[in-house]
Design a protein around this nucleic acid. Structure first.
Length: 140
DNA sequence: GCCAACGTTGGC
DNA sequence: GCCAACGTTGGC
């Protein structure tokens, strides 16, 4: 099962907003980037991802789960843009900052570190396990 | 608030 | 199909 990372500016859509949606979840709409969209199209129900706060906070704050596969983005009529639905799973007891990721040589290849502009990214198994550990979660 | 990096657009 | 111009993102 692949893992992912979703970025959002907390001013626009924060972890708290996501949690407030509960198990119903919410469309991850607004993505207008092909790479990010293609990543979402590859997702399956049950795939997990990190929720990252960009701009303010700049840290991974929680874990989300895909609860609906890719479908048309309801915020646009442009048929190019799809999105998945996400629901909050659990917060990280200790959020993992971008600074921490950059400082850790084991995360040097992480997309978040190398291509900060991609808003929906894949995360490798090793990166996932390490960040969960840094975040204070027991390994899954 | 600034600016570098990146992606997209559109003229040719 | 190339590439310059432009807009946006996001770290600092």
């Amino acid at each position: 099962m692949p893992q992912w990372l979703f970025k959002s500016e907390p001013d626009t859509w924060s972890w708290q907003d996501q949690v407030a949606k509960g198990d119903v979840g919410e469309e991850w709409h607004g993505v207008r980037n092909y790479q990010a969209r293609n990543n979402m199209r590859a997702m399956k129900v049950g795939d997990r991802g990190f929720f990252y706060h960009s701009n303010q906070g700049r840290e991974i704050v929680g874990i989300v789960e895909v609860c609906a596969t890719s479908h048309p983005d309801s915020t646009t009529d442009d048929p190019r843009w799809d999105c998945v639905d996400l629901r909050a799973v659990e917060p990280l007891p200790k959020p993992v900052s971008l600074e921490t990721c950059k400082a850790d040589p084991r995360l040097a290849d992480m997309v978040l570190v190398n291509n900060s502009r991609l808003s929906v990214q894949p995360v490798s198994d090793a990166e996932w396990a390490l960040i969960c550990a840094l975040g204070g979660l027991a390994p899954a």
